[in-house]
């Protein structure tokens, strides 16, 4: 018998796997860190970016009992900064993916369902935007608005990510549009928007959502890249990419030797968070697809 594809059953089966559990732990820890940062960070003010009065003397200290991860270029406790930065990380990736997902789903399913002119225009736009690199857009936005901030990251990433989801939705939706239950809905006189919502979006939402979870990590990577280039969030802001930016700006490549903790730790957190999302999404994807994956593992 075919295993159930209902959301809750998929979740139940996936949750038994080790990868899922590890991923879940990582994500929960990061979320907790983001929420509880003001309460558990050892130097909350410094975490937010304020330079302490005795900062000069505490610059670039290696990890020690007072500063578990060391201090940065202005003497601020790195651990606190990193903890507060979890917030920015999660916010950026979630907003970007959520916006892109919504736009992409709508564009893709409309293109597949309404066909004709609408299809041509939307697919053309999709292909156009897929070719655009986010970093370049970020640069433009930064120069155009002349202020750093969340908007740079969110706008540039959304503009490039939505097309990715639009393309996937389009492919899925095209497969569904020819199926008989859509024909039946049309015959029943259902409003086209209702048909798209009930028969296309609801059906493709599951695989898309799983893809989105995994993409949260990828979005974080790209957002960090933009911030790392100094195009996104401003200096002193709690963000892993920004911390890296400051470190390398101040010390350039010597940072690796002079203050490796400054480079390694933010990077490590980016890596682990991305991994967490990927580990979470993988078992979900496997449970959603036919059980081929399991069989192969049994064989090898």
């Amino acid at each position: 018998m075919e295993p159930s594809r209902l959301g809750k059953h998929v979740l139940l089966r996936a949750s038994k796997k080790l990868r899922f559990k590890i991923g879940l732990v990582i994500v929960v820890v990061m979320v907790a860190m983001a929420i509880l940062a003001p309460y558990i960070a050892p130097y909350p003010d410094e975490g937010l970016g304020r330079v302490p009065l005795d900062g000069e003397g505490r610059r670039l200290l290696p990890p020690s009992p007072q500063h578990l991860l060391g201090t940065d270029t202005l003497g601020r406790d790195l651990l606190s900064r990193i903890m507060f930065a979890a917030r920015a990380a999660l916010m950026q990736s979630t907003i970007v993916i959520a916006l892109s997902l919504v736009i992409g789903l709508v564009v893709g399913s409309f293109a597949a369902y309404f066909k004709g002119f609408v299809e041509s225009v939307l697919t053309y736009l999709t292909e156009l935007f897929m070719a655009v690199p986010s970093l370049v857009i970020a640069l433009f936005i930064r120069l155009a608005t002349n202020t750093p901030g969340y908007h740079v990251v969110i706008v540039s990433l959304t503009l490039t990510w939505w097309a990715w989801y639009a393309r996937i939705s389009y492919v899925y939706a095209k497969g569904i549009v020819e199926l008989d239950y859509v024909v039946l809905a049309k015959l029943a006189g259902l409003h086209p928007l209702k048909i798209v919502g009930r028969h296309i979006l609801r059906v493709i939402f599951q695989p898309m959502a799983v893809q989105a979870i995994s993409d949260l990590g990828s979005a974080l990577l790209e957002a960090s890249a933009i911030n790392f280039m100094g195009l996104g969030l401003p200096r002193d802001y709690p963000d892993w990419g920004v911390i890296l930016f400051e470190g390398l700006r101040e010390l350039s490549v010597i940072a690796f030797i002079r203050a490796p903790w400054l480079v390694v730790f933010p990077g490590l957190f980016i890596l682990i968070t991305t991994l967490g999302f990927a580990l979470l999404a993988d078992p979900l994807r496997e449970e959603l697809d036919p059980r081929l994956s399991r069989r192969w593992r049994l064989w090898f």
Partner: peptide
Amino acid sequence: VLKRIGYVPQDPYRSLNPVLKVKDIIKEP
């Protein structure tokens, strides 16, 4: 006119929306 036609499509394995409950499927017309 189209609403008055009861159409029974060919493949019972692909003609039903897999995420809907049977009652919602039957209710639709």
